[in-house]
């Protein structure tokens, strides 16, 4: 039904400002990639039929957006963990 309050394992995280800044930048990069996808579909949708290695651009871009999200997430986690280790020793 509910959950207990989050536990108190919340020491000061000196890496928090770095992570917040990194997060915003990575978000902006992804948002731009996503924005271009929406823009192509709105402005010149037929471009999405363009052949790329046997598939069309829509499929390649769509899968690309999904895979890019995971790749970015892994990079973000790696960089955050590294910084946490360095600053929170």
């Amino acid at each position: 039904m509910f959950h207990e309050p989050a536990p108190t394992e919340q020491k000061e995280d000196k890496a928090a400002p770095y992570k917040a800044k990194l997060g915003i930048w990575m978000f902006l990069i992804y948002a731009a990639f996503y924005g271009v996808f929406v823009a192509i579909n709105t402005i010149k949708p037929t471009l999405m039929e363009k052949n790329i290695g046997g598939l069309n651009l829509a499929i390649v871009y769509g899968f690309g957006l999904i895979i890019f999200a995971l790749v970015q997430a892994l990079i973000y986690n790696y960089l955050c963990a590294k910084e946490e280790e360095r600053l929170n020793k």
Binding site: F2, H3, P5, A6, Q10, D13, A16, K19, A20, G23, I24, M26, F27, Y30, A31, Y34, F37, G62, L65, I66, A69, Q72, A73, Y76
Partner: peptide, 28 residues
């Protein structure tokens, strides 16, 4: 499939912008 793409892209906002600060601030 646009829904699949959009739903997943939404997690980027959750991860990069919301996840950690929300966890730090929230209790219940």
């Amino acid at each position: 499939f646009l829904y699949s793409i959009g739903y997943l892209a939404g997690w980027i906002v959750a991860l990069f912008v919301v996840a950690e600060p929300m966890k730090r601030l929230g209790k219940y």
